[in-house]
Amino acid sequence: MPTTIAAWRAALEAGDAEAAGGCLAENAVFISPLTEKFRFHGREQITEVLRSAVEVFDDVRYHTEVGEGSTYALFFHCRVGAQAVEEAQLIRLDDAGLIGELTFFGRPLPALTETMLALGPRMLRRQGQPGLGRLIGFAVRPLAAMTRFGERRLVPLGDPNRRRRIDG
Rank of each mutant, 00 (worst) to 15 (best):
M1V: 03
T3V: 15
I5N: 00
I5C: 00
I5L: 03
A6Y: 02
R9G: 00
R9Q: 15
A11W: 02
L12S: 02
L12K: 04
G15A: 04
G15D: 02
D16V: 01
E18F: 08
A19L: 11
A19I: 09
A20P: 00
A20C: 02
G21T: 10
C23Y: 08
C23P: 03
A25E: 03
N27K: 11
I31H: 02
I31P: 00
P33S: 11
T35Q: 10
R39K: 04
R39Y: 05
F40P: 00
F40I: 06
R43I: 12
R43C: 12
E48M: 09
V49I: 09
L50D: 04
A53Y: 05
E55W: 05
D58W: 05
V60M: 02
V60T: 13
V66A: 02
G67F: 01
E68W: 10
E68C: 10
A73V: 07
L74C: 01
R79A: 08
A82P: 12
A82K: 12
A84P: 11
A84H: 12
A84N: 14
A84Q: 13
V85Q: 09
E86D: 09
R92K: 06
G97F: 03
T103D: 10
T103S: 08
F104S: 14
F104R: 10
F104A: 15
F104Q: 07
R107W: 14
R107P: 06
R107L: 14
P108F: 09
P110T: 09
A111I: 13
T113L: 15
L117W: 05
L117I: 08
P121G: 02
R125S: 04
G131Y: 08
L132Q: 14
L132P: 10
G133E: 06
G133A: 12
R134H: 05
I136K: 06
V140M: 03
V140S: 02
R141A: 13
R141P: 07
P142R: 09
L143D: 12
A144I: 05
A144S: 12
A145R: 13
R153F: 12
P156T: 10
L157V: 11
D159M: 05
P160A: 05
N161W: 14
N161C: 03
R163C: 02
R163V: 06
R163Q: 15
I166W: 09
G168M: 05
